[in-house]
Design a protein around this nucleic acid. Structure first.
Length: 651
DNA sequence: GTTAGGG
DNA sequence: CCCTAAC
């Protein structure tokens, strides 16, 4: 039996009072000053959504020895280390205070090897009471008590001068990044027992717009299912899922038997409506794609992973897991508002100003994920639910966004420009700054590639629920549907059935069968009251903003297939190679194969130490060189022969 | 539409 | 992975 649950992801209602920005033409009228264009609003949202997506996607990692991966319900005090050169933008991580009242006050430490180029600390839950918000007040006590009441902006700001919206997408930009994201909890955790006295409190505390269908108290059904045991990354994602699963979760109450749930989980979850999730992410440039890849590949899979998720895509091939990649979803799940706020006069930021000259603060105005739909068997474990939600959210946020930056209506294309160079400076010109959302779907190829039954055309978010079903058969055989709400860009792309080479059936056989049934539900919820009206994402998209295709590193099995085909067909028949070895791989064009061969030849020629990315077995590289030499020779022979033959003909 | 090659 | 000349 499959239950259909509607989960309202409670990314709701964080509001940071905007610092009035004075457009040059405003002439001091307050109403004018505070006015923001829809474009600005939307782009800000998009931008933070990208941040959130990054968090969800790359938030794993560790800082210090005790805290690994998700550290929710912790506040993170971030202070700039003034002893470090500005260029490195190093930060000291202050103490990480547990706001849940637990005695566990882990210290987050940043080693010298960790450079935090961008630090995003979302507002503390106490900020909810915004003038524009119709939502209720959070029960969580002020988490950043060291700050004066209205100075949370300094806590919620992005403490970096380098925060480039485009750079957020460009994951190769940084060595390490720590991001912190507040993830409000809709009403109650799925772990919350119905009989808990907290339940009422929580209910009272949650959003007042928790109108429809909200049960306040979750009544989860738990069964023991070892197959869904969350481990490592799975556990990390589960935690987030927990916080996403909220008010529409109304399963018949049964006892919690899931032993995988830690005591702290149970203790922590019910108590707070708003929650902060901190991710520490530490990585090298080269591990970035690996990590991302592996994350993608294990998405929507039932097996957990090790916490230190440094394996590459190869391992997931070994596991034979289905791989949902974020780009397969092409949607946005959240609404996030950012305000660009010039540094205030507070002493700390003064110092920053002195040094940075043109520092820009970006604060999060609101972040909302209105709805998340999940269908999941009743006998699934909570862990599987968490994973399901987490995967869905991760996939959508992680792969669905790309940010464009507009200054005076002109798109800033050069990501390497500094904000100053791009004309983005604090103060006077903030209103000239805008962002655009470019769905991270390769609109051109993706739509062509997606089977029709898998494609959900972009919907205006004002429309009622538009659904696109996806049944995912996890590797343990549990069938569950995922419905994801996206008010902005519900562009859905089902995973392709060609995750790997057709020459490696062991890699994909089981996946394909499963994924072919896949359907993803996308819901377009109505906008919340406090959310400012926004233009649909796809509307302002310009032709020239066509998204670059998402990089998809070749797996070893794909390389194997490519080598095999080239050995057989030669290097000048890429269309045939494509048909022969990658016919089912819609995302691999023959140009891709040609390019890959080019890089393979190059890789084979350089020293192993210089090689990057997924390591290709030396045996394969040897074959590459051999095949390349052979077919080069053949070409030479042909070229030599042809003139001779012509000469003979002429004679 | 394919191929080849530079970016 | 993109772009495009050349075919």
């Amino acid at each position: 039996m499959v239950l259909t649950k509607r989960l309202d992801c409670g990314f709701n209602g964080y509001h940071v009072p905007p610092v009035p920005r004075v457009p040059k033409s405003a002439k001091g009228k307050r109403s004018v000053r505070r006015k923001k264009t829809a474009e600005n609003r939307m782009s800000a949202i998009d931008m933070l959504a990208a941040v959130a997506g990054k968090l969800l996607l790359e938030g794993e990692g560790s800082l210090g020895s005790r805290t690994t991966g998700v550290c929710d319900a912790y506040n993170l005090n971030v202070k700039r280390d003034h002893t470090k050169p500005l260029k490195n933008e190093s930060f000291d991580m202050g103490s990480c205070t547990n706001t849940l009242g637990s005695n566990d006050t882990s210290q987050w430490e940043v080693g010298n090897d960790v450079k935090l180029l961008s630090t995003v600390v979302m507002p503390a839950p106490t900020i909810i009471k915004s003038d524009t918000s119709s939502r209720g007040v959070c029960t969580e006590r002020p988490s950043l008590s060291t700050k004066k009441s209205n100075s949370f902006i300094s806590e919620t700001a992005v403490y970096t001068k380098d925060l480039d919206p485009c750079g957020l997408e460009n994951r190769m930009d940084v060595d390490a990044r720590l991001l912190s994201l507040v993830v409000p909890l809709g009403t109650d955790s799925v772990l919350h027992s119905r009989s808990s006295p907290r339940c009422r409190e929580d209910k009272l505390a949650v959003d007042k717009d928790d109108d429809e269908n909200s049960s306040g108290c979750a009544q989860p059904s738990f069964t023991t299912n070892k197959a869904f045991k969350p481990r490592g990354l799975g556990e990390r994602r589960s935690r987030i899922s927990k916080q996403l699963a909220t008010k529409f979760w109304k399963v018949a109450p049964t006892m919690t038997k899931d032993r995988e749930l830690s005591k702290t989980d149970v203790e922590m979850k019910p108590n707070f409506y708003r929650r902060r999730i901190c991710y520490a992410h530490q990585r090298t440039q080269r591990s970035l794609f690996k990590r991302r890849k592996s994350f993608q590949r294990c998405s929507i899979s039932a097996s957990g992973r090790g916490g230190n998720n440094r394996v590459n895509g190869v391992s997931s091939n070994v596991n034979g897991m289905s791989s949902y990649e974020p780009e397969d979803f092409h949607g946005i799940i959240g609404l996030i508002c950012l305000d660009l706020i010039p540094f205030s006069s507070d002493s700390d930021t003064k110092r920053y100003q002195d040094e940075l000259l043109c520092a820009v603060k970006l604060s999060i105005k609101a972040f909302k994920v209105p709805e998340l739909f999940v269908e999941i068997p009743e006998n699934s474990t909570v862990a599987s639910l968490k994973r399901t939600v987490m995967d869905a959210v991760t996939a959508i946020l992680g792969g669905g966004l790309r940010i464009g930056v507009l200054v005076q209506g002109k798109k800033v294309r050069d990501d390497s420009k500094t904000l100053l160079q791009a004309g983005i400076s604090h103060g006077d010109r903030m209103d000239e700054l805008g962002f655009t959302l470019e769905p991270n779907s390769n609109q051109t190829s993706a739509r062509l590639d997606i089977p029709e039954e898998c494609y959900l055309p972009p919907c205006d978010f004002a429309e009622p629920l538009a659904r696109f079903p996806a049944t995912v058969l996890a590797s343990d055989g549990v069938n569950f549907d995922i419905c994801l709400g996206s008010p902005l860009a519900p562009i859905v792309n089902c995973p392709e059935s060609d995750r790997d080479s057709v020459h490696s059936p062991s890699d994909t056989m089981s996946l394909d069968k499963n994924i072919k049934n896949a359907r993803v539900l996308i819901a377009i919820p109505s906008m919340s009251v406090e959310t400012p009206p926004m233009t649909p994402v796809h509307k302002p998209r310009r032709p020239e903003l066509i998204q670059r295709r998402i990089r998809r590193p070749f797996s070893v099995s794909e390389v194997e297939a490519l080598v095999q085909a080239v050995e057989k067909l030669g290097t000048g028949r890429w269309r045939d190679v494509k048909i022969r070895a990658f016919d089912n791989a819609k995302h691999r064009t023959y140009v891709d194969l040609k390019d890959k061969w080019k890089t393979l030849v190059h890789t084979a020629r350089i020293a192993p130490q210089q090689r990057r990315g997924v390591p290709v077995p030396q045996e394969l590289l040897d074959r590459v060189l051999a095949a390349h030499a052979y077919w080069s020779q053949q070409q030479v022979k042909l070229q030599v022969k042809s003139p001779v033959a012509e000469g003979r003909l002429l004679l």
